[in-house]
Design a binder for these strands. Structure first.
Lengths: 120, 120
DNA sequence: CCGGATCCGTGTTGATACTG
DNA sequence: CAGTATCAACACGGATCCGG
């Protein structure tokens, strides 16, 4: 079961998945677009305050290349570009949800184990 | 709902989760330890053939710091060190599973859309 | 004005030895 | 076998500039 994609060889579909969603901000971007869609670049920036614009654009381009999201450019002034998940991208919802749920568990775990040391 | 952890502030538990499992090889390592546990370093290296040893050790140390895995050192010669997921780490199983499932979906998607171009 | 591209400094990752 | 050292390559971030 070998998968060739983008000049690389993957031996499990897990590795293929990680190559697509493993980017530094990919999951966060997908989370945004699951909350609301479509979104403009500036709107995603508001959601993800601590991501700089250059990285955001790069990660969006990669997601677009992998056909996870669709980028729609409106030829207007000032420029308007909208991003939204396509079909295969929407199927990432369970991944994002399970991460959010685990995050809740981990937060509770921290609260229990770090006797009220800085979690509130 | 602000979470302070490791001198950083997180505003959602999703961001907290990503800070822990978002490392370059974290998910792959956790996948290994879900397949079989405990595992020695050399065994993890066999599973993750394309990860270099330095990074593997560093990622394992980070997971240990975050209390996701436990590192057991046996004082023998030659050295023997075993890694295994602890309770909160085992709860990551749904995350890994959903990623694997999506990977399967994505692979099928590629097969359909790239008319037998390099997927088999 | 908004999306995005370029320049450049910095931290992270990788390849290949090497040690106990 | 587990882990470290060194150096090169790359990803990332901040600031700035561009084009419509």
């Amino acid at each position: 079961m070998e998968i060739f994609y983008k000049e690389k060889t993957f031996f499990t579909s897990k590795d293929l998945a990680l190559s697509v969603i493993g980017g530094r901000w990919k999951i966060a971007i997908i989370w945004c677009l699951l909350q609301q869609s479509p979104l403009r670049l500036s709107e995603i920036q508001k959601y993800l305050a601590d991501v700089n614009q250059r990285m955001l654009i790069r990660q969006l381009r990669e997601l677009e290349e992998d056909q996870i999201i669709t980028r729609v450019v409106y030829p207007v002034v000032p420029p308007k570009v909208e991003y939204q998940l396509n079909e295969i991208g929407l199927l990432l919802e369970p991944v994002v949800t399970s991460i959010c749920n685990w995050g809740d568990n981990f937060r509770e775990f921290l609260e229990e184990n770090t006797d009220k040391q800085s979690v509130e």
